[in-house]
Design a protein around this nucleic acid. Structure first.
Lengths: 223, 223
DNA sequence: TGACTCTCGATTGTTAACAACTTATGATAA
DNA sequence: TTATCATAAGTTGTTAACAATCGAGAGTCA
């Protein structure tokens, strides 16, 4: 029943990155993480190796681990990969979605709405990503779902680095339109709206100025 | 100039899996790997964590690491993911390919031909995968290229487990047709041929019987 | 024969101490 | 002031010993 400790560390850091609590470039010291999670360095090292394999952490020999800082070129490639993968996921959803699946999507839209209404930015970020993750689950292909989790994680880093407006989230009405098309079984429209949605997201990024935000590790890893 | 030791272990095991020298289910004992690579267990453990993150190794707590054995469902999902990703890669290649790129593809076809003519099965396997990897490189999107590397690795495991005929490789003429379409700048044809090619590959698999092949670790890891 | 338990060997997990490296600090000299 | 270099502190890498767990096999009993 007890989960492996290193996976707990991985998930904890992954969540912090996805929620934009851990900004790009933050140093992930072994001792610091050991203290935070109350374990020995061995587990931390394993966790860092896993995160490095997922491309959200850069591991410099003899110099430690840092949250990855995607370049503008990385950003373009990540968004192209998202279009490729999410298109297939969306097609799967249109073809497989049960009434219950669509109800789940609608419930999610309501939650997103509520978080936005309350001006709850952290929740809005999480739910915005959650929409895409939920689609991936409903698509029924865990291989694609796992890749999309990675890509949305990296998208969070990219948005945190290069976003212009104070808020750059998925526009809620775009999600709503996609769900409507799925419910209507209109595959072509769903795919078109999704593609546009991802392009809008990418367009809301300004590659000129990269804002550097130093973060406190222990503060970021509560939750 | 010296590469990190754990990455050397990872690459070595990855190559062995891609070349079908390491069959699915093979136990990867820490002590055995330490002996083979002449290092301490710490590096081996880090390498196994990385391989687990790449989904080519299953890590069972307190029971050790084993080369992953994909299920038939995994297989379907892997091939669907390949179609999604390689389609985008191929589109990129058609749009970006220089004369030199196309020359590289043609050279690769000749090598494949030669290996087949010599009945050199190991080389044929490696080159067959190499064609897809080369396309991924020429596509210019390292994010997609990395995913495709993972997926071709898992394809090797799948083919090793479920392939019916003694030889289940990419049909060389199918690769040839794709290159011809790329050279002609005929995007639609290239995409269609690639999609068909991947479906043929998947069709050449018999999910009924799963042949179990036990392998020797030290023998598989030469090269 | 079949099922169950116990013990032993082997493997993985944990911990701590030590070595090697990197970086920051401060002193020295031009 | 600026540059260079030496020292020191902190961090990562390595190693070895020890603890915990699992699986196989022998043995026992119905």
């Amino acid at each position: 029943m007890d989960k492996p400790l290193d996976l707990l560390i991985v998930d904890s850091i992954l969540d912090a990155i996805a929620d934009q609590r851990l900004p790009a470039g933050t140093k992930l010291g072994e001792q610091a993480l050991s203290d935070i999670f109350g374990c020995n360095r061995a587990n931390v090292r394993r966790a860092l190796a896993t995160l490095t394999a997922h491309q959200v952490v850069d591991l410099l020999p003899n110099r430690g681990a840092y949250v990855a800082t995607p370049t503008p070129e990385d950003a373009r490639n990540v968004f192209q990969a998202r279009r490729a993968i999410e298109t297939t996921i969306c097609r799967n959803v249109v073809r497989r979605a049960t009434a219950e699946d669509i109800a789940a999507l609608r419930r999610h839209l309501i939650e997103e709405d509520a978080a936005r209404g309350r001006d709850n930015r952290p929740a809005a970020i999480r739910l915005s990503r959650g929409f895409h993750i939920l689609m991936a689950r409903l698509g029924g292909n865990p291989v694609l779902a796992r890749y999309l989790e990675e890509l949305t994680m990296r998208s969070s880093l990219i948005i945190g680095l290069y976003a212009t407006a104070p808020v750059t989230l998925c526009a809620e009405d775009e999600h709503r339109g996609i769900v409507a098309a799925i419910e209507a079984g209109d595959e072509a429209t769903a795919l078109r709206l999704l593609d546009e949605h991802l392009r809008h997201l990418e367009a809301g990024i300004d590659f000129d100025r990269e804002r550097v935000v130093a973060g406190s590790l222990s503060a970021a890893l509560r939750g």
